[in-house]
Design a protein around this nucleic acid. Sequence first.
DNA 1: GCCGTTTTCGGCCCGACTGTTTTCAGTCG
Length: 588
Amino acid sequence: MNNQQIATLLKNVAASYTISDEKKYRFQIIAYQKAADAISGQTSEINDLVKENRLEHLPGVGKSIKSHLEELIKTGRVKHFDKITKQIPKSVFPLLEIPNLGPKTAYKIVKAFSLKNADTVIDDTENLAKNKKIQSLEGFGEKSQEVILQTIKEYKRGKTKSSRMPLPYAFEIAEKVLSHLKKSSSIIEAVPLGSLRRMMPTVGDVDIAVATNEPKKAIEHFVSYPYKHRILEQGSATASILTSAGKQVDLMAQDPTSFGALLQHFTGSKSHNVHLREHCLKIGLSLSEHGIKSVSEPSKTKRYKKEEEFYKALKMDWIPPEMRENTGEIELAIKHKLPKLVELADIKGDLHIHSNFPMEPSHDMGIDSMKDMLKVGQNLKYEYLGFSEHNPSVSRHTKTQIYSIITRRNEYIEQIKSQIKSVRVIKLLEIDILVNGNLAVDNKSLAILDAAIVSIHSSFRMKKEDMTKRVIEGFSHPKAKILAHPTGRMLNERSGYELDFEKIFDFCIENNKALEINSWPNRLDLPDSLIRQAIKYKVKCIINTDSHAASQMTLMRYGVAMGRRGWATKNDITNTLGYNDFIKWLKS
DNA sequence: GCCGTTTTCGGCCCGACTGTTTTCAGTCG
């Protein structure tokens, strides 16, 4: 069961409580929704957290829900959940997937028309709306019937928030909308916020804040966005549109004098905001996107132009957006003990890049020359670059042939070195760890490299113990210093292979090896939660791009963002070291 | 059901928008 499925289950429990007796179960409902939100926002699999007994670190998941989840992972169901949800017709739950249909509305429709079949309930509701049967129900009308019909159609076409997009794609949408917004003189400033600003690996919808003295004009301009499918809502302070590609864009407008409060509010996460607001209530302050007011004097709101001022007014340090997931950052900010996170400018080199040098590998080659990639390295002000093409294919070459290809590449690198001197070149290779734990390159060839990156590219479906053994065996070679994309996950595609990370961490510490934070947008691997854990173990990480083209070398920002989401400081990342120190580590 | 900088009891974020109402309920983020 994946996180979204678990979150849906918890939401269904909350919905069941809402329908049975909203007043009686008011706080259980909040608790279950909170837990669902916490889990759907988690980037590592709850399945693993339960198995590794790390679940208590999730805020919103306490003793009771934790034991329910343990039962769920173990047996596939939860008796307590079954008891609660059994009181509600099964057909209510699929309807909750439709935007704007909450528990009350869904239940009303199901009950009024005796819709019993959960498999067809969405079609049934669509037909009822088409045949104008819903408008006569109490509390409904022509408009709400039309909205139901419309949203079900969009849901069926996949135009819904359920599919999350990779971070760079979300940035692209944001850029397009921003360039549209800039055309209006009513908009003083426009900034993308939400999960985009927190640099979540995937983004559901795009949130944008604007500072304006003419909110009505600003919002009218926003909803006139040429690539919109339709306007979802439009008020005097906020509006939402669906783009023609089916992605939702939310906009909030605010007076420039309160823009800092809006930045804080709209960046989230929800869980961060709720926790922060609960904390502030205890000291008599009520927070909103407008500013801060005292509970004793609710008519007066203090406004803040800058987000820094907002946090400062709460006697806290400003919290980097990447940390705002309510995992302890608020407490540290109060104590002025936040870590100083690694920054893009700290990075001194990229050690995982693939040039087009003809290595005859079994995996994909790069498309640009070493020279072109070095030029980009120069522009990025790097001190060093490590070329790490895939090893020559084992099935098509003898050991001797592999040795001669690597020798040829070394000679070519020496030539280039004499031409470009501002960036130092390190001779690496990305080498497969074979099923038996051996490396795909023998000792003689390894000896002529500065070091090696090792990684898994085959036979993913091994048992956790076997895979851990395989990785550690390959990683044990003295030349192997970096384990690339350690979990093997591909976002929205596959969850990766299973590894015992406590063992991997221990191994890295004992042998002074580093785990890669791969910046490739569909990988972002290590995942942030594992980075956080690795850092706690004092394991070194290294942030690389895995570029297969010179233009991809700027993807470094995404890897750095994941490091920041995992609370990594400059000291935790080996490629923040200057060349001499880095080489010393690499050859240690 | 969760949680702890006045608490192991007694609290629980805050506001916007829409449709169907005639002062509000439901949904969302």
